[in-house]
């Protein structure tokens, strides 16, 4: 055995010299090398557009001089005290926060029913909540307009029954909030269902057996254990709602202008891509910052039991 080893030629003398490229690749683990095509795809399809948006935000206003000019003028315009665009940021983030809060309250009991109460009907109830996602969001929102509009489904039906008609709720901020809660309910519901499914029933029963009230068992056992699902749902719906525009345009009749609408105006009627890009970058930073802050405070790893 030892002789064989001594007689075996040194690898460096017989193996072909590796090409410079493959030597560079050798520094990567096998997994990283296998993932390289995916990384490249992400760089081209995901990172490159982001880089373009960031670069545009530093370009001369109302120009296409991306990568050729550098100015902070677009950000100065946004932070000019006379500019009211902060209102649009406030509306978007406010709507997103209220949407998340309402969805948490609305989705929890439905999720609890799906996990614990509806039995063999749970699948059907789940499908009923998924089904609207197969229809375009704009079509669904226009459906609500027809429902609430004067002499529409609600108002017309109530008048036919001899009443004064339906409430005058269309084209108001409240209606926008309703639209967002309606649109994003499935995105909160199913992570919450997942979270509640992770709660072992025995643990809740044990808490109750040891004298905890139902409220204590919920607050100190069930809710913390279901928190991963709830948190994922809240983050998902917050990000989606902060970027929502159709609800404010269709159901709200633009009674308020949300930040994504301002971005859209900058890219279209204003012919000002650099300003639109600067607004988009700020929105990304705000949402990203809030998301990271929430995650750091809630310590997802600990909740998921990795520590």
């Amino acid at each position: 055995m030892a002789t064989d080893m001594l007689e075996a030629p040194a690898p460096s003398e017989t193996a072909p010299r590796p090409a410079p490229g493959s030597r560079a690749l050798a520094f990567l683990s096998a997994g990283a090398r296998c993932a390289l095509p995916v990384y490249l795809l992400l760089a081209v399809g995901f990172a490159a557009p982001l880089v373009a948006v960031v670069a545009f935000s530093f370009a001369t206003p109302r120009s296409f001089d991306v990568f050729a000019t550098f100015t902070l003028e677009n950000y100065a315009t946004i932070f000019d005290p006379a500019n009211t665009v902060w209102l649009s940021f406030a509306w978007s983030l406010g709507f997103a926060a209220f949407t998340v809060a309402l969805l948490a309250v609305v989705a929890y009991p439905i999720a609890y029913g799906i996990v614990h109460l509806f039995g063999r009907w749970s699948g059907l109830v789940g499908i009923l909540f998924v089904f609207p996602l197969f229809i375009s969001e704009n079509v669904r929102l226009f459906g609500w307009v027809l429902f609430f509009i004067r002499n529409g489904v609600l108002d017309g039906s109530l008048k036919a029954l001899g009443t004064d008609g339906g409430p005058d709720v269309l084209f108001t901020p409240g209606m926008i909030l309703f639209g967002m809660v309606y649109t994003y309910l499935p995105f909160m519901l199913f992570p919450t269902v997942l979270g509640l499914s992770l709660v072992p029933r025995d643990v809740v029963d044990a808490a109750l057996d040891m004298g905890a009230t139902r409220l204590q068992a919920w607050r100190e056992v069930e809710l913390p254990l279901a928190m991963p699902g709830l948190l994922i749902g809240m983050l998902l719906t917050f990000v989606l709602a902060a970027g929502a525009v159709a609800e404010a345009k269709v159901l709200g009749g633009q009674s308020v202008i949300v930040i994504t609408h301002d971005i859209e105006i900058a890219f279209t009627y204003s012919q000002n891509w650099p300003l639109g890009s600067a607004l988009a970058v700020l929105l990304m930073l705000i949402i990203g910052g809030l998301t990271l802050a929430a995650l750091s405070r809630l310590d997802l790893d600990r909740i998921l039991g990795r520590k």
Binding site: N83, T84, Q254, S255, V256, D262, Y269, S270, Q271
Partner: peptide, 16 residues
Amino acid sequence: YDRALDLMNAAKRSRG
């Protein structure tokens, strides 16, 4: 147009 549009967009925002 650019100045007028900016004023009009601000007017739209003030609806809320």
